[in-house]
């Protein structure tokens, strides 16, 4: 296993390098730049600005400099928020998205798994239909509809919550519910599918024949295998959920990293784009690795290779 992890980590180095390189040049070749504004910047001012950010030097030099500073862990200053560094912005915003993401993940698993299991066990009964309908609704209703609806009901009409913001613990409730519901729906569907497949297999029949109780059969024998599709889904999903959801963060005015990820591209904030892409890539790779490890643990047929 150590060999497996070490090997995989080694593979990430070229992957990250390719991502940095591709992003660096792609964002540079997009029309417009950080100083493109509605009000034209006079040529003298533009010259001085570019000199300040080292953008008057050849592109390959800027690329090498950036690579060198990334290796030292310095992601550079932001163009859009000039008094802040990208490191600082990530350090400030990532915890917010992490918190939102983890609460949502808790909601997603807490609701999705039981619903999925219930649906599978009671296949083609009303329980299954209720659970599956919930999942369908969760998947079909977009967050930008559910978010404002919940705000309308709970913040404006009932007055229980703030309409937006991220100031007190109570402000976590609405956004994490909305985000959690979407993932709960996927988790429920995947759990149901996985469970159905496992429940029809021989070893389940064997377990039942040996006189194991139904609860034991489901929780001990079936669930482990039934979770396989959920786990493969959760790897990239966790990376997505904890690195922030642009839509949720925008609707609820949450100071998370998801908004920076999208807005930095609109602002042509070169360094912040690279920083957030790097962060997201890192998370994605790490989560996929963890999902792979978990899959091997869940499925005895797989081996670390």
């Amino acid at each position: 296993m150590i060999r497996f992890v070490a090997l995989r980590l080694l593979q990430t180095v070229p992957v990250i390098w390719v991502i940095i390189t591709a992003t660096f040049f792609m964002i540079r070749f997009v029309p417009g730049g950080p100083f493109t504004s509605e009000r034209a910047v006079t040529p003298e001012i533009r010259r001085n600005l570019e000199a300040h950010y080292g953008m008057n030097r050849p592109l390959y030099r800027q690329y090498l400099d950036y690579g060198w500073s990334v290796m030292r862990g310095d992601l550079g200053p932001s163009f859009k928020y000039p008094t802040r560094t990208v490191n600082e912005i990530i350090a400030e915003k990532l915890p917010v998205s992490l918190e939102l993401g983890l609460i949502s993940l808790g909601i997603a698993l807490g609701i999705g798994l039981p619903l999925g299991v219930l649906a599978a066990v009671n296949r083609n009964t009303w329980v299954d239909y209720v659970c599956s309908s919930f999942a369908m609704v969760g998947i079909c209703v977009p967050t930008f509809v559910m978010g404002p609806l919940l705000i309308l009901a709970f913040a404006i009409h009932l007055g229980w919550f703030n309409a937006s913001g991220w100031y007190q613990p109570i402000d976590r409730v609405l956004p994490s519910t909305v985000l959690g519901m979407v993932y709960a729906a996927y988790v429920a569907r995947l759990t149901r599918g996985g469970m159905l497949e496992v429940l029809s297999q021989d070893f389940i029949r064997t377990a039942r024949a040996k006189g194991a109780g139904e609860t034991r059969v489901i929780l001990k024998h079936a669930l482990r295998g039934g979770l396989t599709p959920v786990v493969s889904f959760l790897g990239p999903a966790i990376a997505g959920i904890v690195t922030g959801s642009f839509v949720i963060e925008k609707i609820f005015q949450i100071p998370g990293i998801g908004r920076e990820f999208v807005n930095s591209a609109f602002n042509r904030d070169y360094t912040l784009v690279l920083g957030t892409v790097l962060l997201y890539a890192g998370f994605l790779i790490a989560m996929n690795l963890m999902a792979d490890i978990a899959l091997v643990w869940l499925n005895p047929k797989l081996k670390f290779e």
């Binding site: 229980w160 007190q168 409730v173």
Partner: peptide
């Protein structure tokens, strides 16, 4: 809005979970 209120009653326990009443900004 009325139908929303009915819907609200279904999800109300969620808010109770958080143990809170409306908190205005400072």
């Amino acid at each position: 809005i009325r139908s929303l209120r009915r819907y609200a009653a279904l999800i109300a326990p969620l808010a109770l979970l958080a143990g809170c009443s409306r908190s205005a900004l400072p």
